[in-house]
Simulated scan of single mutants.
Amino acid sequence: MGLKSEGTAIPHFTIGVVDNDAFALAAMGNYLSRALADSTDLDWLTTSATTAIHRCLTEPCPDMLLVDMSMSEMSGIEVIRTIRERDSRIMLLAVTSFPLDEYAQSAADAGAQAIAAKGDVRQLTATILGVQRRQPYRYASIDFPLAQDAFARLAHHRQHDGIDSLTPRERTIVELSADGNTSVNIARQLGLSPATVGTYIQRACRKCGVKNRVQLIALLVKRRNTR
């Protein structure tokens, strides 16, 4: 799992961080400021997903954004996809305190370059440095795309199957469903009720012209397999 060192010189980078847990955000900021002082400027920290998106889509934007996966305003998957569909340059790193398996595939599909555990500071540092070097990242059997490749893939698929007509929240729920999560699991991750998750699934089915959740998941899996 992770990145192979190639001895490439590390350029000077700027990083932004979004995490709606203010305590965790401050702790991560303090750690990164010390651990990456020689190669990186910590540009800004925010607890707001919408603020992070705005800052990443306006100049000057950071070279990399660390995105917590579990936020109340909108999910980390939604933040990553929203930015990646509009920008091919910024590097996006998913971070989470949950098991990486819960988010790895969805983060890669949304356009992230890697995923790391917030609680493992050594792994987090190594992953940040590897992404800065543009090294390919692999978790389990999941290959994470480079930023430009993810942007091109999302642009190619945008107009074809109805998936891209979904709202960010609908898309996140469909992605998590395709990863094998039940409505109860999705509700826990996103802070919703299982009934609300079911409503989002029904709306997504109507938009994509399919009859049920199984067909909806099959549609998304087909798209993933054509990446």
Rank of each mutant, 00 (worst) to 15 (best):
139 Y>K: 01
103 Y>F: 15
188 R>E: 06
30 N>D: 05
169 R>D: 00
187 A>G: 08
182 T>W: 03
144 F>M: 06
14 T>R: 10
211 K>L: 08
42 L>A: 09
170 E>Y: 00
151 F>T: 03
58 T>G: 06
141 S>T: 12
3 L>Y: 08
144 F>G: 11
189 Q>E: 03
35 A>E: 08
9 A>P: 01
35 A>S: 10
169 R>W: 00
156 H>D: 11
41 D>A: 13
86 R>G: 06
217 I>S: 03
139 Y>D: 03
4 K>L: 07
144 F>W: 11
71 M>C: 00
106 S>E: 14
40 T>V: 13
119 G>Y: 13
128 I>M: 14
143 D>N: 14
184 V>Q: 11
42 L>K: 06
72 S>N: 08
193 S>G: 12
84 R>P: 01
152 A>K: 08
3 L>N: 09
154 L>A: 05
20 N>Y: 04
168 P>G: 03
85 E>Y: 07
108 A>W: 05
166 L>H: 01
209 G>Q: 07
213 R>G: 09
204 A>Q: 00
136 P>I: 05
40 T>S: 12
66 L>A: 12
41 D>F: 09
154 L>C: 06
214 V>H: 15
136 P>R: 10
57 L>E: 01
22 A>V: 09
84 R>F: 02
59 E>H: 05
79 V>N: 09
75 S>I: 06
